[in-house]
């Protein structure tokens, strides 16, 4: 049966209301859908990028520590631990990255290995990671502090190893539409007593991607 004009209008009015409500629901749902999502950092499947991301630093750090441990360079004969200081790690790439992204991961893994400890009281630049080790010793002259709780002289441990390195980037054209970015993570572990390198390692990470523009 053909509906009359009124029923059509009525139906369309009802339909419009439903449409509006439906749209609002959809919009609110789509709002939820486009909200921020946590990434499972242990199983990140998001696409790789031409720049360095945390996965690359993790891989380079794991490679370096595994190689160091395999080489025996950080196994002290008497079973005690080496004390490490971190020297300069140069960022020679085309990206503004903090090399601590690499160094911290190496430090954590080395500490976890049980073979190495890291000093935070000394730094080659004169700005130790934790200035408190030196600063608390200034309390020796303060009458406000119980002097038996103030750190005594000759307690700080000097480093016997130094970690230094460089991250190098090299871009190469593969074709008109593709380019390759190679990242070289070069690290050296130096025995501070002899000045000799106990261990050296290089991890290369290569990426191929669009050549539309620069790789940074």
């Amino acid at each position: 049966m053909k509906p009359d004009r009124f029923s059509i209008e009525k139906r369309s009015s009802k339909g419009s209301r439903k449409l509006v409500i439906g749209t609002m629901l959809l919009l609110s749902m789509s709002g939820c859908g486009s909200s921020v999502q946590n990434i499972d950092m242990s199983n990140d499947k998001t696409p790789a990028v031409m720049q360095l991301d945390y996965r690359d630093f993790e891989m380079a750090a794991s490679d370096a520590v595994a190689s160091m441990l395999r080489s025996g360079a950080v196994n002290k004969r008497d079973g005690s631990r080496y004390v490490l200081t971190v020297g300069r790690v140069i960022n020679d790439t085309m990206q503004r990255i903090d090399t601590d992204l690499l160094v911290k991961k190496i430090r954590v893994e080395l500490l976890n290995s049980g073979n190495v400890m890291v000093t935070t009281a000394y730094d080659v630049t004169g700005n130790p990671e934790d200035a408190n080790s030196m600063k608390v010793r200034e309390l020796r002259s303060s009458s406000e502090f119980k002097q038996e709780t103030v750190q005594k002289q000759g307690q700080l441990i000097a480093p016997d190893m130094s970690l230094s390195g460089k991250i190098i980037q090299r871009n190469i054209r593969v074709s008109g539409s593709k380019q390759k970015a190679e990242y070289y993570f070069q690290l050296t572990l130096t025995d501070l007593k002899s000045g000799l390198a106990f261990w050296e390692g290089e991890t290369v990470i290569g990426k191929i991607g669009s050549n539309k523009s620069v790789a940074w």
């Binding site: 140069i90 960022n91 020679d92 790439t93 085309m94 990206q95 503004r96 980037q169 871009n171 054209r173 008109g176 620069v214 790789a215 940074w216």
Partner: peptide
């Protein structure tokens, strides 16, 4: 200087890219 280094590296890479891009 650490940030200056990144920019110099970029400048050099731009010059390399430009040579290749022009032919294309």
């Amino acid at each position: 200087p650490d940030l200056a280094r990144v920019e110099f590296n970029r400048a050099m890479d731009r010059q390399r890219r430009a040579r290749e891009r022009f032919a294309e």
